[in-house]
Amino acid sequence: MTTSTIVVGLDGGEAGNRALAFATTQAKLIGDCTLKIVYVIEWSPFSFQTPEENAERHKRREEELSMARERIIEPAVKAATDMGLPVDGVVKHGDVADILDDIAKKNKALQIVVGRVGLRGLKERMFGGVTGRLAIGSSVPVTIIP
């Protein structure tokens, strides 16, 4: 058990890799630090679905979880482990900003590290994206990697 934790948010792309690289460096500098690598599958309990989607939801959820673990979390965990760091990988459904903040709070993390994704589309403009919302609302320091 290490004394400190850094939460890293992955997005399955370049931005997440940059965040992981930065967090790895930080964790090494700190020395006694666990990396909590998190991938969130965007999902809302208040979305609308057809009856058929509902019936298959449990199956799809399992598929989504295992795919995210296999393709995103496992390579990242392996990379960090190879660097000699204690690592923990997590995949969850929900709102990205909320979940990252929840995990950070629960683990008393030093900070959350996320990569900045270029603003795209109306939705990002209106809601400021995950990074913006984290910066505004998180309960621990947030590092945004450009």
Partner: peptide
């Protein structure tokens, strides 16, 4: 969702089941 276990996130919620039935 007050009684929904956060560990079950990603499963069909009460809201979704109700909304689906209502749209019918």
């Amino acid at each position: 969702g007050d009684y929904s276990d956060p560990e079950d996130a990603g499963e069909v919620s009460h809201f979704q089941a109700l909304a689906t039935a209502l749209s019918g």
